[in-house]
Computed example of a mutant assay.
Amino acid sequence: MPNPRPEALDFLLTRRSRPAKTLTAPWPARADLGPLLEAAARTPDHGKLEPWRFIVLEEAALQRLAALVESRGVALGLEAEAIEKARRQYADAGLVVAVVESPKASEKIPAIEQTYSAGAVCLALLNAALAAGWGANWLSGWASHDRAFVAEGLGLAAHERIAGMIHIGTETNAPPERPRPDLAAITQWVDA
Results as ranks from 00 to 15, higher is better:
P19R: 00
E58F: 01
I112G: 02
G94Q: 07
L139C: 14
G34K: 15
D182L: 09
L57V: 05
G77K: 04
W138A: 01
V97I: 13
I162W: 09
V100L: 07
T170I: 10
G133P: 14
K85W: 02
L57T: 08
I55K: 03
L123Y: 13
G164P: 06
E7F: 01
A93H: 10
G141F: 07
I109F: 03
P26D: 14
H159C: 09
E58Q: 09
G94H: 06
A60Y: 00
E171F: 02
L9C: 06
A163K: 12
E79S: 07
F149L: 04
A185C: 09
E81Y: 01
A192C: 11
Y116W: 15
D146E: 10
K21E: 07
A80H: 06
R87F: 12
Q188L: 15
N173Y: 11
A60V: 02
G135T: 05
F149S: 03
E152Q: 14
A129T: 13
L154H: 05
K21T: 00
E84D: 08
L126E: 08
M165S: 02
I186L: 06
P4F: 08
V150I: 15
L125P: 06
L139P: 03
T43A: 12
E70W: 05
E160N: 14
F11A: 05
A151R: 15
G34W: 13
V96R: 05
D10G: 12
E107K: 15
A131Q: 07
L123K: 08
P28T: 11
V150N: 05
L23N: 05
E177D: 15
R87V: 11
V74F: 03
K21H: 07
F11G: 10
G153Q: 11
Y90A: 13
M165G: 02
L37G: 08
A118I: 10
R88G: 01
L62I: 04
W142Y: 07
T115F: 14
R5W: 05
L154A: 08
K85L: 10
V69F: 12
P176H: 12
W142D: 03
L125D: 06
S71A: 12
M165K: 01
A105Q: 13
A158K: 07
E38S: 09
P6F: 01
G141Y: 09
H159E: 13
V96P: 03
I186T: 03
A67G: 14
D182M: 09
N137R: 00
A86L: 06
E113T: 11
T172W: 11
E101A: 15
R72Q: 12
Q114L: 09
D146C: 04
Y90I: 03
L57S: 05
T24E: 10
